[in-house]
Amino acid sequence: MSRQQRDALDALLRSAPRSETPPTLEEQRSGFTAAVTRPVPQGVVTHRTVLGGRPTLELEPAAVSGRGRLLYLHGGGYVIGSPETHAGMVGELARRAGLRAMSVDYRLAPEHPFPAAVDDGLAAYRELLAMGAGPQDLVMAGDSAGGGLTIATLLAAREAGLPQPAAVVVFSPWVDLTLAGGSIRSKEGVDPIFTAADIRAYADLYVGTGDRAHPLASPVFADLTGLPPLLVQVGANEVLLDDAVRLAARAGADDVEVTLEVGPGLPHVFQHHYGRLDEADAALDRAARFLATHLGADRLEPVR
């Protein structure tokens, strides 16, 4: 990252003023939508559909390679966000991988607390299989809370006796709702987006007084045996750094093929900054190649 890019990104991330009065839930949701949403890439067509009983945004690149499908679960602390807020980044990942993508509008807390989101992720995955998609033609991805939800969905699928997909990618996954990772404290002054209090507030809304160490809420404490090849990407400048590092370690200990990438000087879900940050474009290219390779398209060159 050039100094100019670093300064511009830091200014962008720190530009939102923090009020002494906590924003309402509606203000959080509308503010997130305004800050994060980017246009769907050119050459990617979107369709609204339903998957697993939930509204779903289907994104189809002009150049689709084979029968592969990507099931995507968006971030937002289980409280905010939608397929629309993430359509730009998901469209970029789908375009570069040459995959049709399905981005699920799973139910959000606090209206629908844990395990509603997991139930929706599992229902979507189950329906893709029921529609005739072979597990070898399916991959999954998610960011932040959606990254944790992606892992939880795979655990729920395993427990339900369903086959695992070909591969999974997670960006800055939130996988420990107990906030036990050391970076929750050590990176708080460095992270330009979140504080420990922010993360704790999302956990309060999602789990409430429930068990925050439950493996479907905090997959870092789960037995990950049998999960598919996993790529974890995370920025070094984020309070959730240790979530990603410990997830990769847990996967490795459970004999899962895992690749961990830590981006120096980068913030939470830096992939959102594709087109204006070189590291974001490179990370999306690597994620696209990882998914395509495990689908058997190992000759695929990422589309730029």
Results as ranks from 00 to 15, higher is better:
Arg6Leu: 09
Arg6Phe: 13
Leu9His: 09
Asp10Asn: 14
Ala11Ile: 02
Arg14Val: 02
Ala16Met: 04
Pro17Val: 11
Arg18Asn: 13
Glu20Asp: 15
Glu20Arg: 15
Glu26Asn: 14
Glu26Cys: 12
Arg29Trp: 03
Ser30Asn: 14
Thr33Glu: 15
Ala35Ile: 00
Thr37Val: 07
Gly43Ile: 13
Val45Gly: 10
Val45Pro: 10
Val45Thr: 15
Gly53Cys: 06
Pro55Lys: 08
Pro55Tyr: 12
Glu60Gly: 05
Pro61Arg: 04
Val64Leu: 14
Ser65Arg: 14
Ser65Glu: 13
Ser65Asn: 10
Gly66Pro: 10
Arg67Tyr: 13
Leu71Cys: 13
Leu71Ser: 08
Leu71Asn: 03
Tyr72Ile: 00
Tyr72Val: 02
Leu73Pro: 09
His74Glu: 11
Gly76Asp: 01
Gly76Gln: 01
Gly76Arg: 02
Tyr78Ala: 07
Tyr78Ile: 01
Gly81Tyr: 00
Gly81Asp: 00
Pro83Gly: 12
Pro83Met: 11
Thr85Gly: 14
Leu93Lys: 01
Arg96Pro: 14
Arg96Ser: 13
Gly98Met: 02
Gly98Asp: 03
Asp105Pro: 02
Tyr106Cys: 10
Tyr106Val: 09
Pro110Arg: 02
Glu111Cys: 06
Pro113Tyr: 05
Ala117Gln: 10
Val118Asn: 11
Leu122Thr: 12
Ala124Tyr: 00
Ala130His: 07
Met131His: 10
Met131Pro: 06
Gly134Cys: 03
Asp137Ile: 00
Val139Asp: 11
Ala141Pro: 14
Gly142Ala: 12
Ala145Lys: 04
Gly147Val: 00
Leu149Arg: 03
Ile151Tyr: 07
Leu154Glu: 09
Leu155Gly: 15
Ala157Thr: 04
Ala157Cys: 04
Arg158Gly: 13
Arg158Trp: 10
Ala160Leu: 05
Gln164Thr: 11
Pro165Cys: 05
Ala166Gln: 04
Ala166Phe: 10
Val170Tyr: 00
Trp174Glu: 06
Trp174Phe: 11
Ala180Asn: 13
Lys187Gln: 15
Val190Met: 03
Asp191Val: 06
Pro192Arg: 01
Ile193Ala: 07
Ile193Trp: 05
Thr195Cys: 12
Ala201Cys: 04
Ala201Lys: 01
Tyr202Phe: 15
Leu205Arg: 13
Tyr206Ser: 10
Val207Trp: 08
Thr209Lys: 12
Thr209Asn: 15
Gly210Met: 05
Arg212Gln: 14
Arg212Lys: 08
Leu216Asn: 10
Ala217Glu: 00
Ala217Asn: 00
Val220Thr: 07
Phe221Pro: 07
Ala222Pro: 10
Leu224His: 08
Thr225Phe: 12
Gly226Val: 05
Pro228Gly: 04
Pro228Leu: 01
Pro228Ala: 04
Val232Thr: 02
Gln233Met: 13
Ala236Ile: 07
Glu238His: 02
Val239Asp: 02
Val239Met: 03
Leu240Thr: 06
Asp242Gly: 11
Asp242Pro: 09
Asp242Ala: 10
Asp243Gly: 00
Leu247Trp: 11
Leu247Ser: 11
Ala251Leu: 08
Glu257Asn: 13
Val258His: 04
Thr259Ile: 08
Glu261Ile: 01
Glu261Asn: 06
Leu266Pro: 14
Pro267Ser: 07
His268Thr: 04
Phe270Asn: 01
His272Leu: 15
His273Asn: 14
His273Asp: 15
Gly275Cys: 11
Arg286Cys: 12
Ala287Leu: 05
Phe290Trp: 13
Leu291Gln: 08
Leu291Glu: 08
Thr293Val: 09
Thr293Cys: 09
His294Cys: 06
Glu301Lys: 03
